[in-house]
Amino acid sequence: MGSLNLDMGLRDILSEKKPAILKRWFDAIVDTYPANTAEFLKSQQDRFANPVGHAISQGIEEIFDELMAGVDPERVSPFLDNILRVRAVQDFKPAEAVSFIFLLKKAIREEMKNLNGQTLGELPELESGIDELALCAFNVYMKCREDLYTVKANELRNMTSRLLERANIIRPTGGLEPETKEAVIKVKRKEVTE
């Protein structure tokens, strides 16, 4: 996917208004959290004391720049991941988790409401780029959830693997040993030394 085919006028306006757009976008995302939380996410500037706020503010800037350059799924995915990895474990339904992308449309429209008709006519092109971002976001969200389930499965395996290995139920490389029950009995009787 190439860069966005935008009129220089709109491109200039967007880059000039970038800080204002990002602020509107950030505030809209943060307002999906309860009021007390939103206040904290906005006010605490230390990235280690407020990792969620930091991930959002840094992430949306990177995503915005990518949008301007033309959405390349491979390049933009790590930026989306920084935000979505958090939202994938927070109390959001899948649609809620990825919805923050669409809030950018709202932020741009609000920031540009005084523009003339010709420039506004180019907004659909920009909004198609945002739709592409949303599709990428869906992929990234799913990857995060899959990672979460893999983490769960691996953890359960780690907890018990040594026990099962010792009982000769699984081999160190994985896979079930035949005659499992007998093997367990042998271990219990201490007939198995290995």
Binding site: F40, Q44, Q90
Partner: peptide
């Protein structure tokens, strides 16, 4: 805002 569960969950 010092609790890791608040920071991470936003609840």
């Amino acid at each position: 805002d010092k609790c890791h569960f608040f920071i991470g969950s936003g609840d």
